[in-house]
């Protein structure tokens, strides 16, 4: 690991200023991804600015509705929070489907959003990777692609975003509060992460030095249900091959509010807007779920090792929507 200077500023503005002064400086949250990447030589910061105590570590209810999650809140605490478990079960389920108990105790909310891809070529500094070293080429395109993207990839990068939590947040229309050098701003989670295009080195729309201070979840319709399902190579402690986060509200057999996000299939949590548009206002039936899932996945462009993800994503999507309607007693 390269030597670095450690800083622990007293307020968020000081932290932002420390990064503004140094393009190689980085924020440290729980460290579960960053410290690993530093050991691997993928991350090589000169200055590490510890922000794990700078932002909130709790869930607060907002007066205008919804909740605000402190950026430094550990994943384990967020999963266990009674308000989250009761009102946003999809988020609690997604968090507990990720990593291990040991990692969730360290990992923070903002750090989870900003974790880097686990593409094996990205993590191996001896192989070309456009995300790690722009212009060096993509080793995955002609390599081992079981865990790679089937939607929205480019010739420059086929990596997937590894977070479960971010998939649930995308389905919940979460909004990230950011403190930047030029002041605070709000970014919807669905616009936080990018598709790779010809700049795969940029995971997100954040500028260098932007500090995530909290994540807001808007209120859901009171009768809406939500659920997260994750399919992986082993029963526990593995990244998603495919995951689905869905929020669904059905009245008299007709779909009202419907938000769906897919994980493990793209460079960002993939909001299934085609499926949502097809479902909204229509019947909550298995046939309709199947048609919407098929339509959403028509854009898939699988790689040699991951064609299985296309039918898998369709099936899990239908399964999750079926679960949400059956337990609601609707759509029958």
């Amino acid at each position: 690991m390269r030597p670095f200077r450690y800083e622990r500023p007293d307020d968020p503005l000081a932290a932002v200023a420390l990064l503004a002064d140094d393009p190689t400086a980085t924020f440290l949250g729980g460290g579960t991804n960053l410290v690993d990447l530093m050991k691997l030589g993928v991350a090589r910061p000169d200055v590490v600015v510890d922000v794990a105590r700078l932002t909130g570590r709790a869930v607060e209810t907002l007066p205008e509705g919804g909740v605000r999650i402190g950026a430094a809140m550990p994943n384990s605490d967020l999963a266990a929070d009674p308000v989250i478990r009761h009102r946003y079960p999809v988020l609690s389920q997604a968090l507990l489907a990720g990593a291990s108990g040991q990692l969730r105790n360290l990992a923070t909310t903002a750090g989870n959003l900003l974790q880097r891809t686990r593409c094996v070529y990205f993590q191996d500094v001896t192989t070309p990777c456009n995300k790690r070293e722009p212009g060096s080429g993509c080793s995955a395109v002609d390599g081992w692609t079981r865990h790679h993207a089937v939607l929205g990839a480019s010739q420059h990068c086929v990596a997937t975003h590894p977070s479960d939590m971010a998939v649930a947040m995308a389905a919940l229309d979460a909004v990230v509060q950011v403190q930047g050098a030029r002041g605070p701003r709000r970014i919807p989670v669905v616009e936080l992460h990018r598709l790779p295009g010809d700049e795969p080195q940029r995971d997100t729309s954040l500028e260098h030095g932007d500090l995530i201070t909290s994540v807001d979840l808007p209120d859901l319709p009171v009768t809406a249900r939500s659920h997260y399902a994750k399919v992986r190579d082993r029963a526990s402690y593995a990244f998603a091959l495919v995951s689905v986060a869905a929020v669904l509200d059905v009245h008299d057999g007709i779909v009202g509010h419907v938000h769906i996000a897919l994980g493990g299939v793209a460079h960002k949590p993939w909001r299934a807007t085609i499926a949502e548009d097809m479902l909204r206002g229509g019947p909550a039936t298995t046939d309709a779920f199947r048609a919407a899932a098929v339509a959403e996945l028509t854009r898939a462009r699988p790689l040699p090792d991951n064609a299985f993800k296309v039918p898998l994503a369709r099936n899990v999507l239908v399964s999750v929507l079926g679960h949400l309607t059956s337990s609601a007693g609707a759509g029958r």
């Binding site: 079960p89 609690s92 997604a94 968090l95 029963a235 099936n315």
Partner: peptide, 11 residues
Amino acid sequence: SGLAQCGRRRA
């Protein structure tokens, strides 16, 4: 506690 039954088993 509990939550998050493994998706694979569920699937």
